[in-house]
Design a protein around this nucleic acid. Structure first.
Lengths: 125, 125
DNA sequence: ACGGTTCGCTTTGCGATGCAAAGTAGAGCC
DNA sequence: GGCTCTACTTTGCATCGCAAAGCGAACCGT
């Protein structure tokens, strides 16, 4: 039993605990990136187009994001039509940026490992 | 009907279609990053420790990755013990690198949008 | 003014998926 | 010969993403 007690210092080296499940999801990552790029907020239909999502899909993900207090949904009326304005909450922005640093770490780890030879940006010759 | 026919040029700007679902998963992303960092391959227990995964979890994800032809599993015996050696397939390496370029794009989009002001990598030219 | 259509969004249903707990198999001790 | 440890696999559940259907309020033509 002595053996498995010795924790390699590399334990969890690649576990990336910081990859929040709520954020780390194609659709929601898209939404959040869109929102961070539009600090004034985005209307439901715009978000839908930017992220190439269906109505139902976007609705669901927004609910999840709101539940997690990452985005705020402001339902109002514009030109006598309902309009939901989606915005990143301050907390959401913070958590998203945190998440991003982890993502950067992943990219760096991988790029470094892949070797300077096979550069990512420049495709393999 | 004429209106919605006009596709904004920004349509899908943030949809990131390239984020392969098989790869874009916390656990599997960990596994793949570990593997790209260890071109000679990794044994099941090592991978398990590096990624902080349970046996069952790792087993399942490896099966998925193998199914997708991203990794190869070589089951053998070492010192009279079973040992599964996991390696990235050439195709797997390629697809992972592709995925990474998209990830980079996400990070870049977000970092730029978050504003050069807010840290992150803060080395935006 | 009223039927139909469109817009904006929500709900429902289902198939897929991640995860953990339990299960299997063989090697090494006692 | 049983006990245990390592190395995985399988099973079961609960969650989740997704698409299709639903819903209601405006607007439009007649």
């Amino acid at each position: 039993m002595a053996r498995s007690d010795a924790p390699d210092r590399d334990d969890g080296r690649f576990s990336y605990e910081g990859l929040d499940r709520v954020i780390h999801e194609k659709a929601r990552l898209s939404v959040l990136t869109s929102l961070v790029a539009h600090p004034k907020g985005l209307a439901f239909p715009d978000l839908k187009r930017l992220c190439n999502l269906t109505d139902g899909n976007l609705s669901r993900h927004l609910a999840v994001l709101q539940e997690a207090d990452l985005v705020s949904l402001e339902k109002g009326q514009v030109q006598n039509r309902p309009q939901t304005l989606c915005r990143l909450t301050p907390a959401g922005r913070g958590r998203f940026l945190e998440y991003l640093t982890v993502l950067e770490q992943v990219v760096r780890d991988a790029a470094r490992a892949a070797g300077p030879a096979s550069d990512l940006a420049t495709k393999t010759a």
